[in-house]
Design a protein around this nucleic acid. Structure first.
Lengths: 338, 338
DNA sequence: CAGAAATTGGTAATCGATTACCACACTCCC
DNA sequence: GGGAGTGTGGTAATCGATTACCAATTTCTG
């Protein structure tokens, strides 16, 4: 390590300025100089020091990203999509996990800011607890929220249109004949949990289906299993269950089937996300597909528009998702009530 | 943005040297100076510029990581574990995906080196194609391979003990009564594919079970489905199938069941990895669990030991995995031949 | 061919934090 | 009171790439 542009310049017998110009091509140099510099750089194996360049240019070519957890396949998919988008423009991704804790999230934001990332993409873990750190960061660097967002709407956001998503899900099971529908999601600590629940309630009202009180726990398989057991023990079984994500749905289907309830014949189950293994479950899950690639592309695009120096109203981009009908929901053709 | 230590020094009425010393505490300053500097820093919201510090210190506190694809839950799990380990020591992770292509991998390596990462953790996508770029990188910065490795053994490696893994898998199905066993993996383009196949062959010989020619395709669900169909069409059905990863196993189970073959009653299926959703499949998959956290911890530990300046023989750390028996393999109690 | 214009090379400043080195002030002791 | 010793603050160099500015050379024009 340690070949600098000075070494190249000396080897080529020119000044550092000429070497820099020859390598970057930002100003003309004589063919002779250009060639000597190119040869010297190749021979020495010169590689520009991106740290020095970043200091001088006041831009690092690096984007910071913070998600609650890399273990969750939904966030993984977004990370992959964002990484892919950044590649296109030659930028790199500094990835952090907040482990669903606002205090860790705040610390990670600080170190990313200290590293002078050119922008931040974040899915804030807590709708309330994440507010101060996120707003503070947004004041210093372009910041776009993805999927989850903080209350108050102080920063740009890209996500899925939960109203449209839940409407599609509810309408679908209603068309399959469901009269009593229940929502299973997570406790209302993040925006997705809240907006999916309210989207569900609006959709149910509009579709004219009856609802049971929602089950709110965690976005996990285990919670799905637990709710399945609760439903088996209760005296009324809904015609359809709409879940806040796929993991809940998979656990729920498993528990219901184990308990002797047939899916979809007796109960339809609809998931949310369609990432990871929704399609590969048995039976394949009917679910709402998140437009992850579009979200990532939009987030990266928005990042480029933000100018910290002159604030503009926060943008909110909600992308309409698509319901993917597989085998855990009753087909429309089956029709009829319970 | 842009509060520098000069601003702090000016506000506190001291020189930059004193300000730096007061903030870092590396040399004594009078209490008076210490307090004035602390107050000034707090009031101005001073945050040290990590880029400048990196340039001066010749160390960035950043580790680069390259995996073939973030979509694969196995790599995701490793990334998460590595990120977690690095947190402990206050370092950050620059994450890249090679998309299973050596040319992209080589480019990503170059940009990570240009960014002067303090170390590299990589799972090389191609046992041959990745060789030059990986060896070149290893000459310039501490580098540890995880899971996959390049031929020739020029760089440290941490992974799972495939021999032990396959022995456990083969012995398990043999004890369940299997006499004819087949291996389904991927084409031999990466080290995992190769060493799992050879581990399988050794284990089968030692256990005295007969084998069919292996099926080598991709590490995907689709390949598992395809092999399942091939087996259904063939005239001999093995007693057990050992798979190179969980995705293949899930696809295979699905295809066999769809074709009317009962798992595990007629055929035992064993997966590999136990990440993502192996446990949540239906039926839950018998599989070999990769010791991912240990691998990540070991990789980070090794990184700290490497000194590029004085090369030492490449270390190879193979961690013994554990077979997790679930419901796709015949229990030992069942005993007996086919 | 003189002088203007255009082109290209070099020197040194810049980005921000750290620290080697020097200088000053104060204490202590004989 | 003066010399040694200790502690503290300041100045300027350093890390490496880029570029503003100046100087020198070449080219062009009347």
């Amino acid at each position: 390590m340690g070949v600098t542009i000075h070494d190249v310049a000396r080897a080529a017998g020119v000044s550092v300025a000429s070497a820099s110009r020859a390598l970057s091509g930002r100003r003309k140099v004589t063919p002779d100089v250009a060639e000597r510099v190119a040869r010297a750089a190749a021979e020495l194996g010169y590689q520009p020091n991106a740290v020095a360049k970043a200091l001088r240019d006041q831009t690092t070519g690096t984007i910071g990203m913070i998600v609650p957890g890399i273990g969750n396949p939904f966030f993984t998919t977004i990370v992959e999509a964002v990484e892919h988008q950044l590649q296109e423009t030659g930028r790199d991704l500094l990835l952090c996990a907040s482990q669903y804790r606002p205090d860790i999230e705040a610390r990670r934001l600080e170190t990313l800011l200290a590293r002078r990332v050119d922008g931040l993409i974040i899915s804030p873990c807590d709708i309330e607890g994440s507010v101060p750190a996120v707003l503070n960061a947004a004041r210093r660097v372009p910041l776009v929220q993805v999927d989850r967002y903080i209350e108050g709407g102080g920063a740009d956001w890209v996500g899925v249109d939960d109203d449209s998503a839940l409407a599609q899900a509810v309408d679908h099971v209603a068309e399959g004949g469901a009269r009593l529908v229940v929502f299973v999601g997570s406790r209302l600590m993040n925006s997705s949990a809240r907006s999916r629940l309210s989207g569900f309630e609006r959709a149910a009202t509009r579709a004219g289906v009856a609802t049971m009180p929602p089950f709110l726990g965690e976005f996990t398989l285990e919670w799905g299993v637990e709710v399945g057991r609760l439903l088996l023990d209760a005296d009324t079984m809904p015609d359809a269950v709409i879940c806040g994500n796929d993991q809940i749905a998979v656990g729920l289907v498993r528990a219901l089937r184990t308990g002797g309830v047939r899916v979809p014949e007796e109960v339809s189950v609809v998931g949310f996300d369609d990432v990871g293994h929704a399609a590969m479950c048995d039976p394949p899950l009917t679910t709402v597909r998140q437009p992850v690639e579009e979200m990532a592309a939009e987030a990266v695009r928005l990042l480029g528009l933000v100018r910290v120096s002159d604030p503009r109203p926060a943008q909110r981009v909600a992308i309409a998702p698509r319901l993917v009908v597989r085998e855990t929901s009753r087909p429309v053709a089956a029709g009829g009530g319970k």
